[in-house]
Design a protein around this nucleic acid. Structure first.
Length: 464
RNA sequence: GUCCCCAUCGUCUAGAGGCCUAGGACACCUCCCUUUCACGGAGGCGACAGGGGUUCGACUCCCCUUGGGGACGCCA
């Protein structure tokens, strides 16, 4: 049997980091077993689903490179399937119409809560042998409820959490179709997972409690129950649950914030899953290694520091031309146009070793393409009057120097010797004059790449 | 409240009864490299939540406690 997994988001928002990991694991599991990965949009909640959200999810997955083999399937386009199965469930006595109103149910729930009971449907309209059902009210659109077994337990061997067992008496008769006839989540999931031949359901562990209901539904439909793997959730950097107002950002926001998809992917893969001590690996490797046995059952806290470390790694090992393309866009957002000289590839070769973020990298090298505004504190600290003559002297020597790092270095060394200075006494002021700040890579390298004309021009503005 | 799940360094994790005086990674600290800041290299700090069992032996198995999380919708 070929493995078929699915990612089934509801389009009520963007693809956040937890969803991305669920998608990644489902995708990788399918790849690992030469199976199919299916994308299904669970949009039965028409009120909250939007086409923008669908697009945002697809964009997010595309950025990460998580391509689906089938789909996207939309539940709203599969209504006839659900209706058919709904009818057959009624037919077989596994489902029934319930005329309890929302108000009645709300009141019921409230009183049960007050009594310290688990809120659940009271079975008022559940047909039983020899039971007299109440008279059908005329002005109520009935919902359809699933007739859940009342005895025994439903158990499954969760591929992440191990054996889980829940007593049927904990479950009530869930609504599988609303008053308007539209099917609800738990029912659609089961029909879809069945009809789409899903063999492994890999999803967040907030669904653990839905699983026994779904298994009962599978059985009532006479369908084979898939295997389940419930992933624990991802917590924020502070150990708190991620929520809309608390860091549950779109994966695409990571793009905007200067992260490479490779870094996000590698980070996510390692969050809650392990392959011995391996930390850095690409998706090809991941797809060969990935298994469900090494997924941690406990929740994992997101750690930006480690993501940054991985990002640094992938910036260093990125294809230089692709990196240049990306940085060009980021510079353009800063209002800076990259020119042919100095060559961006040269600049990046010099700078990417030290970067762990693409945005930082872009702003650090901005001075190659725009005269920087010097940092006041650095000017004050390094451009002291007593050093200016030495810089003036250097400037004059540079005018007639052939422009190679070696020769530039030689001139600086010469000035230092003549004026009895230490290297930093000249290098630091030079950095401030050229880059606007006192930190940069090797100053002669910077000068070589910046170009003779530009170096002299920037020095001039300080020397007169 | 009821049910379900979880529990190793600050964080992510290795660990399938002896390999564990518990390993790796991020972060942190020290030193080295050095032309500043980084990169890099070498060290260091640092954990099996508590209590009972089971066993010759428990980080590993069982139970309880504690702590965390999740679910209890005509949402998904």
């Amino acid at each position: 049997m070929t493995v078929r997994t699915r990612f089934a988001p509801s389009p009520t928002g963007f693809l956040h980091i937890g969803g991305a990991r669920t998608a990644l694991f489902s995708w990788a599991y399918a790849k690992r077993h030469a199976g199919q990965f299916i994308l299904r949009i669970e949009d039965t909640d028409i009120e909250r689903s939007t086409p923008e959200a669908v697009q945002a999810i697809i964009d997010g997955m595309q950025w990460l490179g998580l391509a689906h083999d089938e789909g996207p399937f939309y539940q709203t386009q599969r209504m006839d399937h659900y209706k058919n199965h709904l009818a057959s469930l009624i037919e077989s006595g596994n489902a029934y119409y319930c005329y309890s109103t929302k108000d009645e149910l709300d009141a019921l729930r409230e009183s049960q809560m007050q009594q310290g009971l688990k809120p659940r449907y009271d079975g008022k309209w559940r047909p039983e042998a020899g039971k007299q059902l109440p008279p059908v009210p005329e002005d109520v659109q009935p919902v359809i409820r699933f007739r859940n077994p009342q005895e025994g337990v439903v158990a499954w061997d969760d591929l992440v959490k191990g054996k889980i067992e829940i007593a049927n008496e904990e479950l009530d008769d869930l609504i599988i179709a609303r008053g308007d006839g539209t099917p609800t989540y738990n029912f659609c999931v089961v029909v879809d997972d069945w009809e789409m031949g899903i063999t492994h359901v890999i999803r967040g562990d907030d669904h653990v409690n839905n699983t026994p209901r779904q298994i009962n539904l599978f059985k009532a439909l006479g369908a084979a129950v898939p295997q389940y793997a419930h992933l624990s959730m991802i917590l924020g950097d502070d150990g708190q649950k991620l929520s809309k107002r608390h860091g549950a950002v779109s994966v695409l926001q990571y793009h905007e914030e200067g992260y490479l998809p490779e870094a996000i992917l590698n980070y996510l893969a390692r969050l809650g899953w392990s392959h011995g001590d391996d930390e850095i690996f690409d998706m090809q490797q991941f797809c060969q290694w990935f298994d469900l046995d090494h997924i941690t059952p406990s929740a994992a806290q997101f750690n930006n520091e480690k993501l940054n470390w991985l990002n640094a790694h992938y910036i260093k090992s990125a294809d230089l031309n692709e990196l240049a393309l990306d940085i060009t866009k980021r510079l353009s957002k800063l209002g800076i146009a990259v020119t042919a000289e100095p060559a961006l590839n040269d600049v990046l070769s010099l700078y990417r070793e030290r970067a762990n973020n693409l945005n930082h990298l872009a702003s650090e090298i901005a001075y190659f393409y725009r005269v920087p505004e010097a940092n006041e504190a650095d000017v004050e600290k390094h451009l002291k009057t007593e050093i200016m003559p030495a810089l003036q002297y250097l400037y004059e020597m540079l005018v007639n120097t052939e422009w190679t790092p070696e020769l530039i270095h030689e001139r600086i060394a010469h000035v230092i010797k003549e004026k009895a200075l230490k290297f930093p006494q000249v290098a630091m002021p030079l950095r401030v004059m050229l880059a606007g700040v006192a930190q940069s890579p090797s100053i002669d390298q910077v000068m070589a790449i910046l170009g003779k004309q530009e170096v002299l021009r920037r020095m001039e503005s300080y020397l007169n």
